[in-house]
Design a protein around this nucleic acid. Sequence first.
DNA 1: TTACTAAAAGACAAAAAGGTCTTTTAGTAA
DNA 2: TTACTAAAAGACCTTTTTGTCTTTTAGTAA
Lengths: 146, 146
Amino acid sequence: MFNKETEYALRGLVYIKLQNMRGRRPGTSEVAKEIKAPPFYTAKILQRLVRIGFLNSLKGKGGGFFFDPAKPDLPLIKLITATEGDRSFSGCGFGLKHCDSENPCPLHKKYSAVRQSINKLISEETVQSLAKKVYKNELSLSESMK
Amino acid sequence: MFNKETEYALRGLVYIKLQNMRGRRPGTSEVAKEIKAPPFYTAKILQRLVRIGFLNSLKGKGGGFFFDPAKPDLPLIKLITATEGDRSFSGCGFGLKHCDSENPCPLHKKYSAVRQSINKLISEETVQSLAKKVYKNELSLSESMK
DNA sequence: TTACTAAAAGACAAAAAGGTCTTTTAGTAA
DNA sequence: TTACTAAAAGACCTTTTTGTCTTTTAGTAA
Ligand code: FES
Ligand code: FES
């Protein structure tokens, strides 16, 4: 579905938000471990997200990553666009340069419906809304242990 | 949506089937040109599809690619699985190793619905059904020229 | 059977994605 | 103000994907 970078970013941010809700600011190695992602790569990705402005960080002892509570929630579509560009979920499923309902490909009718439901999903859900679900329902951020 | 190889394979096969319906057997360079794909890469991909058995070919003058009319239609899901493996449209949208409704990720509920509609689409449609649509409705296999 | 045509095979190369690691900088706590 | 902690930055590497090209093989038509 998403590429690795987006996956790690998404899982990482949800984990960070969840910890923030519990009054903590996790660091890179904790995040990487919890979301089962490569530690250095995770660090690099989180740094990029801070630079973009999606996330805040604090250096030094007791430091770590956190969300500015004053900022609006971060919809998945914004995150995805930032990590993998616009490529997904806008183009033609058949690979034409542009999806054009005036000049549709043979997949257009069915595919554009699916595409719309994907866009709805990633526009409605935010990092925060996902974290809240985990918080309330004990949903999983990593594999079940059984 | 799909990777390049799958896209070229899909467009190429639909083009070939369409030409077959018109009594022709196109060759690699014709296919590549018509679907706007890199010629040598297209050749390589088509060769692989022949080896797999999705497609037939005939060498020599008047030769080219064609579908065995006796064979059943080729659903997109088979093509996709052959070109890019099982990775898409089965796993967890959040990146967990397995999608497990007993231990769902926070995307599970909404994502699994979308995933199912994708699977429905690629199971229902076949190379042949798409070619037929193009044949009947003059749908587009490449960009509009305007 | 010769000349031609077209696919088959596979080596090779460029670009993008994914990942690792070292050095530097900035902060905190005692 | 020293010692420690943790992020920032960026060089470097590996793997996968995408793409190119040459040589070989198999067939057709005349
Ligand atoms: S033209 Fe292909 S999806 Fe719209
Ligand atoms: S567990 Fe993530 S989609 Fe099912």
